[in-house]
């Protein structure tokens, strides 16, 4: 199929970017979206033009590297699908496709479609773990975990840290990301001792960074490629409220 692409080109963080138009004549419907961009980049290279920079790695939808706003939607039109797993069969001959980086104050553009998402690591550093040193663990069967909690914890733990939730949110809030981690650990017995402090510390950290506040729009859960439910945010709010009432304070 023939496609017209309008791709955000930005040399670096200090220069202004713009949409640039490219034409591709021979796109196969079995290509992934990134393979289509590979074809564009091969062409640009041979034409002596700078290829489009974009983050990608596993191309299996699990590493969370790829991050593109496609026709206005983070990761594009297919539900529960990362950019790398989106295939061209979901587009039609003659389409014009807009490709942009994540747009959020907390994720500044580095170049073209590449953004800086290190703020997510900082949120995890503020409490997204169980404080257990290597070697100090009891036998794995010492504490049974009911299957429903284990399964729900797993569902929340599948977050890949791609940042689509932030990109989709009108406020640029990282609430769904933070809530997914709080939910994952808060549902497991291993996560209980730090549950209250974790919730308030992680929330305080995200507020301190350049993320906006959550106003329950729900766009995050709509675009999440792993289907993290909006209900995780309720759980975070619940834990934060409980922690605050019990007198816990952020570090």
């Amino acid at each position: 199929m023939k496609l017209t692409l309008r791709v955000w080109r930005q040399k670096n963080a200090d220069t202004k970017g713009k949409m640039v138009k490219y034409h591709l004549d021979d796109v196969d419907e079995d290509m992934s979206f990134l393979e289509m961009l590979d074809v564009l980049n091969e062409k640009l290279t041979l034409d002596d033009e700078d290829p489009v920079s974009f983050d990608h790695d596993c191309r299996e939808g699990i590493c969370g590297s790829c991050a593109m706003v496609i026709n206005g939607v983070p990761h594009g039109p297919q539900k529960n699908t990362t950019t790398c797993q989106l295939h061209m069969r979901h587009f039609s001959d003659g389409d014009t496709i807009d490709v942009e980086p994540w747009r959020a104050r907390a994720f500044p553009v580095i170049k073209d479609l590449v953004t800086d998402r290190s703020a997510f690591d900082q949120i995890i550093q503020s409490g997204g773990y169980v404080s257990v040193n290597t070697g100090s663990a009891p036998d794995a069967h010492a504490t049974p975990v009911d299957k429903v909690s284990a399964d729900d914890a797993f569902d929340a733990a599948t977050c890949i840290g791609c940042g689509a939730c932030v990109a989709a949110c009108p406020n640029g809030s990282s609430m769904l990301f933070t809530a997914a981690k709080v939910t994952h650990l808060g549902l497991l017995p291993q996560g209980q001792p730090e549950r209250a402090t974790r919730a308030i510390n992680m929330l305080a950290k995200q507020d301190e960074l350049d993320f906006g506040g959550c106003t329950n729009v729900g766009a995050c859960a709509e675009v999440c490629p792993k289907g993290i439910p909006l209900a995780s945010i309720s759980r975070l709010n619940h834990d934060v409220l409980g922690a605050t009432l019990s007198g816990a304070r952020a570090d």
Binding site: V132, A140, A153, L188, Q190
Partner: peptide, 8 residues
């Protein structure tokens, strides 16, 4: 170790 870390 992994269970203690909260690996689901």
């Amino acid at each position: 170790q992994c269970v203690a870390q909260g690996v689901p």
